[in-house]
């Protein structure tokens, strides 16, 4: 019983991290048709900001968390302004290659200006403690991660349903030109999407840093790749799909680890991707694929 609860919490916290990052990808994709592979570098940028601010200004973890969130939002919006805005009307492939280019440039900037080796930043490690819930030992970080993700999803839902900009973001996923014809500036809607995406990356960054306690140039790449798979499973461009895909992937990953005998541990990834392939055979567009109509991206 304890073991089962422990593993469920594992699955939830894995899934929460994937869902956070997948949501960040999906929000930008749904509006612009851009698969933002530089999203991982936004996460890494948050980590480096934490190192710099933690060294120079303050070691207070709560101020640092705020700083990480702000840094990720700012860099995400900045990337849109300098890199993605210029290719907005171009072919989708151009956007994808631009994203890869931005990702490579940023990774190398981290290498050159930082270090190829991990730089320790341990201010958030206190989040990860073993706590007793009843008679069960669980990791507090996993609980925080699951709860924070759930709160972030609820906040995002409220934003997307109640605010004009949120409505515009949902509408823009279907018909961007019509959103402009309602009087909303395209730049403003897209910048908001990148800001929200950056905020989610910042949240993911805090939890990744709490687990790793160190920042390295390529730390964002793997999580984003996994989140990309989560998006594909859920249906690319669908926000509920991204969340579902994230949690599903977390559950499958933990399930495979639990069910496979220890000696087959190295097959875990193969098993996960085989299951993903099966899901895609069943639903080629993903489980919750969004509406097909796409307006002009202007």
């Amino acid at each position: 019983m304890d073991y089962a609860i422990q593993q469920i919490l594992n699955a939830l916290s894995f899934g929460a991290e994937y869902a956070l990052i997948a949501l960040g990808l999906a929000i930008v994709f749904s509006i612009m048709g851009l698969v933002n592979f530089a999203h991982g570098e936004v996460i890494a940028f948050g980590g480096y900001s934490m190192v710099i601010i933690g060294t120079v200004l303050t070691g207070n973890p709560f101020i640092l968390m705020g700083a990480v969130l702000i840094a990720c939002v700012l860099v995400s919006v900045l990337l849109e302004r300098v890199a993605f805005r210029t290719v907005r009307k171009a072919d989708l492939t151009t956007g994808l290659l631009t994203a890869f280019g931005v990702s490579i440039i940023l990774q190398n900037a981290f290498l050159l200006l930082g270090s190829p080796r991990p730089i320790p930043a341990t201010q958030f490690i206190f989040l990860d403690r073993t706590v007793l819930v009843g008679s069960i030992q669980v990791s507090s970080l996993q609980i925080y991660e699951t709860v924070a993700t759930a709160l972030a999803i609820v906040a995002l839902m409220i934003f997307l349903r109640r605010s004009t900009l949120g409505l515009a973001m949902r509408a823009a996923a279907l018909d961007f030109e019509m959103v402009r014809l309602c009087g909303l500036r395209a730049n403003r809607v897209i910048a908001t999407a990148f800001a929200v995406s950056g905020l989610l990356a910042g949240l993911a960054c805090i939890f990744i840093m709490a687990r790793r306690g160190a920042v390295s140039p390529h730390m964002g790449f793997d999580p984003v790749l996994t989140a990309f798979v989560a998006c594909v499973i859920g249906g690319f461009g669908s926000l509920p799909g991204a969340v579902l895909g994230g949690f599903l992937l977390g559950a499958v990953e933990v399930g495979v680890l639990v069910l496979l005998p220890q000696s087959y541990g190295s097959l875990a990834h193969a098993a996960v991707f085989a299951l993903v392939a099966l899901i895609l055979v069943w639903r080629p567009d993903g489980i919750l694929s969004p509406a097909k109509e796409k307006g002009d991206k202007i």
């Binding site: 349903r161 004009t164 409505l167 515009a168 949902r170 509408a171 996923a173 279907l174 018909d175 019509m178 959103v179 014809l181 309602c182 009087g183 909303l184 969004p290 509406a291 109509e293 307006g295």
Partner: peptide, 25 residues
């Protein structure tokens, strides 16, 4: 203000949300 050819209502938004979008300015 334009009521476009083919109507182009936001299918994925509720009726109320469509009207609110119209008043976005």
């Amino acid at each position: 203000a334009l009521s476009p050819e083919g109507r182009r209502v936001f299918y994925n938004l509720s009726v109320r949300e469509n009207l609110v979008m119209g008043a976005a300015i």
